[in-house]
Design a protein around this nucleic acid. Structure first.
Lengths: 227, 227, 227, 227
DNA sequence: CATGAATGAGGTTTCATTCAT
DNA sequence: CATGAATGAAACCTCATTCAT
């Protein structure tokens, strides 16, 4: 939707170079400061070519975070788990899966994760503004659905206001999660990106412990009141 | 620290014009897109003057969010409450005060709040990067202090990992709070800024209910396990 | 001359699509701003194909106004009338026929007329410059021939300087005519093109009256002095 | 109105260099093809400076033709003659003065005249489109005023339709005049600009004869019918 | 004969900052 | 202390045309 067919048809190697360059640039600079000039130079293609592949700068970014990042991240959260959670209304179960996936995705692809997070920063670009609003709306809808289902099934406190819980959860599993993760590693996402060799990646066990910690707080916070 | 003495000595009226113009600009555009040219034009001063008052663009922004915004926001959170909470280790009590203050501050000064939130967006400017890191570190330290004190006093679950809880709380009382607030009003912060007349401000009662809602989740989530 | 044989041999439907797209583009934009990219996109052909049909941008334009527009316009001015006027030296009779044809052609094909008028605007393209010069020279020659014949036959004032009268007539029956016509309709050619539905086309009677008005001025102005 | 005060305050010598460069460029290329890059290079100023003097490209052009050219041309048509013609309703007398001024202006400043004529060519720029429409409207109003006054005073045929006569006269004293003049000199305006040394300027006597020739046609064409 | 990816020069404009007055 | 003209790098994007397939 965001990339032209020209881009889809590119030889894998060239396509990869462009993707890599874009991730690098949008990962390192806010959207407004990211430079298409630098991207094409790093990718070794001409300025004109980039505009054969993408309508404009915002279309490139859109593709990167909405299609590419989404697809890569999708590999970390199984569709099965999502489906099961939907059926059973198991919000918390789903959150655990989603958070774990998010953590590992961020550790495996920190620059891409950083680039995607920038969507929330807002920008002068109208297109980006719309993307942000839509992303927020969609996230909120999904969360609200889960919350309401969970309440109906008696797994969440029925007195909780879904309008309040859904953004809380969206944050808890998105930006806040990344922040906490980095605090846990003793750095920040930007610091991690600048000198990745300096920090040791969380082990699987640490990841589990970390996710359990957050989950425990959410579970207790959202559970129905004991009779 | 960020502003030169020339700026401090300015006639109140002129100073106010500059502050107002800066809030407007940094509230409406990401840091990189914010234009000093537009600010001086809106403030009715010369470009040279601006550089007499502030070293450069980032110094102006630094002053705006670290000195001005902090001072304005300080009026919404009484020092007394902060002190009492420190003494009693009453993290939750403090959070309630802080959140309420944050909500009202955001409603009273939405553009300034938006400008300040942009600090977290990261930027190409190194100075700003340092500011962001420092802001995060400081926030975390304060929170950690509270958490550890609360645990020692038996008011928080001693098994909670402070490294995990502090960023969670920082988010819950910062960006997440603003998001949730805006969802509650049916908009987003940017939407609210673009068309302020379109949305009705939360009433005092609504604010209380909103804060109570968040607090209840935190209280239950962080409380010591029942024996 | 301007189009390659490949273009002439094209299936009618495809050829029509290209012509239509070119008229649209050259009618809407000055030559320099007109975009071959947009034309091929609108026509649904490949860029390479366009260069199989026409040497380059200026050849396409050349064909459009010198071959296509000339042919279409020719349908509005009968060859018979032209021949008769030539034989009888009836400049004024010919002008009446030519003006009426020009008016109806412009009303029937306003975009094509606009595209053709652009030739007179001059351009950075050398080829176009030559076209313009040649067009002017040819028009002037025809007019001069008529004027001199008319003078010899006693239908025009013999004191008139043909070098002066011929460009006057060329304008009166070309750009000036179109302008006057549009003033009569209460708009301009560009305004008419932008919102064609907004203006009501001149009726046949109005066209006749309009042409008669211009002719009357020319007749009196160019007639031999009464003895 | 079109130029910023920055430009008005410039040292005469620098200002002249810029004006000269702009005339050269807009005289030699259609508006869309004219390049601000070439102008600043020729004028020996920086790109940024040009944008301190003028809002943008169209503002520069606007100033050049609406303020500068108008002022220069004004020197060739005395305000006194204009005023007198207004009082006496002497359209033809005014036209003679205006045409003579136009001819000499064009001979003295052919590139500036060419640049100004380009306004009528239409362009992709919206601002320019508005300029053109306004210019046409204004010219037509002035002409119509003259025509109606001339008719009331019995100097023009009362049966003439002002809506038809005014664009005719506007052309006759504008683009058509320049064309005819150049035909008289055996060239075209563009040919004259490219190789000015090749053509000999009309003498004063020739100019008078030329203007008389056009005037005679108009006089007879517009005069009231003899009783 | 058709295709459409590739090109890179060039377009206009904005920017933060300096410094002579 | 105030001014605002000057700067030139950099921004995003479009263009007509070519040529290998």
């Amino acid at each position: 939707m965001a990339a032209k067919t020209t881009f889809e048809n590119l030889p894998e190697e060239k396509r990869a170079r462009i993707v890599e360059a874009a991730i690098e640039e949008f990962g390192a600079h806010p959207y407004a400061s990211a430079s298409t000039n630098r991207i094409v130079k790093a990718a070794g293609i001409s300025k004109g070519s980039m505009y054969q592949y993408f309508e404009n700068k915002s279309a490139l970014y859109r593709w990167l975070v909405w299609e590419h990042a989404a697809q890569v991240k999708g590999r970390y959260v199984s569709a099965k788990a999502y489906g099961e959670a939907m059926e059973t209304g198991d919000l918390l179960g789903f959150l655990r899966v989603a958070m774990r996936g998010g953590v590992v995705f961020t550790l495996d692809h920190p620059r891409l994760a950083r680039a995607a997070l920038r969507l929330m920063e807002g920008s002068a670009d109208e297109e980006l503004g719309r993307m942000k609003e839509e992303h927020l709306r969609m996230g909120e809808q999904v969360m609200r659905m889960f919350v309401e289902k969970g309440q109906r099934m008696g797994k969440l406190d029925p007195d909780l206001d879904p309008e309040l819980v859904s953004p809380l959860i969206a944050h808890a599993t998105g930006p806040m999660l990344v922040d906490a993760m980095m605090v846990k590693m003793g750095t920040t996402l930007d610091g991690y990106l600048n000198r990745p060799e300096e920090w040791t990646r969380m082990t699987e066990a640490e990841i589990d412990g970390f996710v359990d910690g957050v989950m425990m707080i959410l579970e207790r916070g959202l559970a129905p009141k004991p009779a």
